[in-house]
Computed example of a mutant assay.
Amino acid sequence: MKSLWTLALSGLLLTLSGGVQAEQAVGCVEVTVGGYKAPNYDCLSQQMGNNPDGAAAAQKNQEAMNVPVNKRPPNQVGLATPAATSTRMGNTFGTSVKPQRPPN
């Protein structure tokens, strides 16, 4: 009788431990529906988000976006550049203050 209880208890423990291991999936599962693959985006996002260097990379990206005004190119600040002025003025650049316009 004791061996029967031991056998039942060990079987129950194996079932419970197998259930815990099934919940901790290592890889992502891709499902094919009607010929189209549908990846598990939650799993992929979780895998991409567990990068310890991710915070450092995000901080570097933020620093790169916050360039001081005196270091930015003139067209980002709103200043006129010779190339932009030449395009706007057409063939009258340097000879007239009125931009080139097509004949009416």
Rank of each mutant, 00 (worst) to 15 (best):
K2I: 02
K2V: 04
S3A: 10
S3C: 10
L4N: 04
W5V: 03
W5E: 09
W5A: 09
W5F: 11
T6W: 12
T6F: 12
T6C: 15
T6N: 09
L7G: 13
L7R: 15
A8P: 09
A8M: 13
A8H: 08
G11C: 15
G11M: 14
L12N: 07
L12Y: 12
L12C: 14
L13T: 12
L14Y: 06
L14D: 01
L14R: 10
G18A: 14
G18I: 11
V20D: 15
V20M: 13
A22Q: 11
E23Y: 05
E23G: 01
E23N: 08
V26K: 11
G27Q: 14
C28W: 03
V29A: 07
V31E: 05
V31W: 07
V31R: 05
V33N: 12
G34L: 12
G34P: 03
G34D: 14
G34E: 13
G35T: 03
G35E: 12
Y36L: 15
K37Y: 04
K37C: 03
P39D: 01
P39Q: 01
Y41V: 13
Y41H: 10
D42A: 11
C43I: 09
L44C: 06
L44S: 05
S45H: 08
S45D: 14
Q46P: 01
M48P: 13
M48N: 08
D53R: 09
D53Q: 12
D53N: 11
A55P: 05
A56N: 02
A57S: 08
Q59G: 08
Q59S: 11
N61W: 02
E63S: 04
E63A: 03
M65R: 08
M65E: 11
N66Q: 09
V69W: 01
V69Y: 05
N70E: 07
K71R: 13
P73M: 02
P73S: 06
N75W: 06
V77Y: 06
G78A: 02
G78R: 03
G78V: 04
T81D: 02
P82F: 00
P82G: 00
A83S: 07
A84I: 05
S86Y: 06
S86P: 06
M89F: 08
G90L: 03
T92F: 08
T92A: 00
F93D: 01
F93P: 00
T95R: 14
S96N: 13
S96Q: 05
K98N: 12
P99W: 02
P99T: 05
Q100W: 11
R101G: 06
P102L: 01
N104Q: 15
